[in-house]
């Protein structure tokens, strides 16, 4: 009985040891395998993190380019907004200058009687110096260029707008000696007709600044009546404070330069030029540099400016 029990216990011990001997290598194998799997997992996880980071970078780049695309698509609206803000600020600056609270200076370059075929050359100079100006337009020669009857000048209206200049009204006929100032109605009709011309040629640009051909003094006794009528049409008017004399009999570049520099005295200047005159074209780059060296900021005219008289 005792021997049989001992024999059974030995058998159990042997079985247990056999099981143990089998289990231990399996355990070792699994343990080692798990270490290897863990390494593989860590490596994959690292790849995943790197790929996710790349993906996020790529997504950020897409967001950036989408923003840039939106900006390009909204460019005309943004330009409009920035111009509105700019004109408000210029008005504030003008007020400060006129109240002697600012030493800043402003010059408004203006070109009368165009569009001429030579206007393209003037526009290129202005572009070269990043200057925005104001063009007082007439339709004195119909659709043809006044300085070259073989050329049609109507494309210039869109060019003014495209290049960011102000288009202003110099009456349709410019007929100082052909009845423009014979009555208030004649003058106002010539303004309205030119406004319509600009509107048609530019697909909707509305002029609201007038320069009287010959200057407001030329209107004589009709001046106050005309101004009242212009007010009703939401127009302001402007003369000039400086010029190179190219509207008269200008004989040389030196004369143009001397006329121009001798008339630059004010803190806010409205400079009168004509965009057909070869001497004006010659002095224009130097005139721009001269004004900039003297601290003038060169700007296009706008209705709210103090230089645009409303009464």
């Amino acid at each position: 009985m005792g021997k049989s029990l001992k024999s059974n216990q030995r058998k159990i011990i042997v079985i247990l040891i056999v099981i143990l001997v089998l289990l231990i290598p399996i355990n070792i194998y699994l343990y080692l395998n798990n270490i290897s799997l863990k390494k593989e997992y860590q490596s994959l996880n690292k790849d995943y993190q790197t790929n996710t980071k790349d993906f996020k970078n790529e997504s950020n780049k897409i967001d950036e380019i989408k923003d840039k695309l939106d900006k390009l698509n909204n460019l005309s609206n943004d330009t409009k907004k920035i111009k509105e803000e700019l004109f408000k600020d210029i008005k504030i600056l003008e007020d400060s200058i006129l109240n002697n609270k600012s030493n800043s200076k402003i010059a408004y370059l203006t070109f009368d009687d165009g569009p001429y075929y030579s206007t393209y050359k003037f526009l290129d100079v202005l572009d070269q110096y990043n200057v925005k100006a104001t063009f007082f337009t007439t339709s004195i020669n119909g659709t043809n260029c006044f300085d070259d009857n073989t050329k049609n000048c109507m494309a210039l209206y869109k060019e003014y707008v495209k290049r960011g200049h102000t288009i202003a009204n110099h009456t349709y006929t410019h007929g100082i000696f052909k009845g423009l100032y014979s009555s208030i109605d004649n003058f106002i009709n010539a303004v309205k007709k030119q406004e319509e011309k600009v509107k048609t040629e530019t697909d909707g640009y509305i002029t609201n600044i007038v320069r009287f051909p010959g200057g407001s003094v030329t209107a004589g006794r009709l001046k106050s009546g005309i101004i009242k009528e212009l007010q009703k049409l939401n127009y302001g008017y402007v003369d000039w404070t400086a010029e190179d004399g190219d509207g008269g009999n200008l004989t040389s570049r030196t004369a143009a330069w001397n006329n121009f520099t001798s008339t630059i005295n004010e803190k806010i200047e409205v400079v009168l030029f004509h965009d057909f005159n070869k001497y004006t074209l010659e002095i224009l780059p130097d005139a721009i540099k001269y004004l900039e060296d003297k601290g003038y900021i060169l700007l296009p005219l706008f209705y709210e400016s103090n230089m645009i008289k409303k009464s």
Binding site: L72, L75, D78, T79, I82, K83, E85, L86, D89, I90, L93, N130, K132, R163, G164, I297, L299
Partner: peptide, 14 residues
């Protein structure tokens, strides 16, 4: 774009 930048620069100057 050049137009926009010109106006933007003018605004900065003012």
């Amino acid at each position: 774009l050049k137009e926009y930048e010109t106006w933007e620069n003018l605004l900065k100057v003012i």
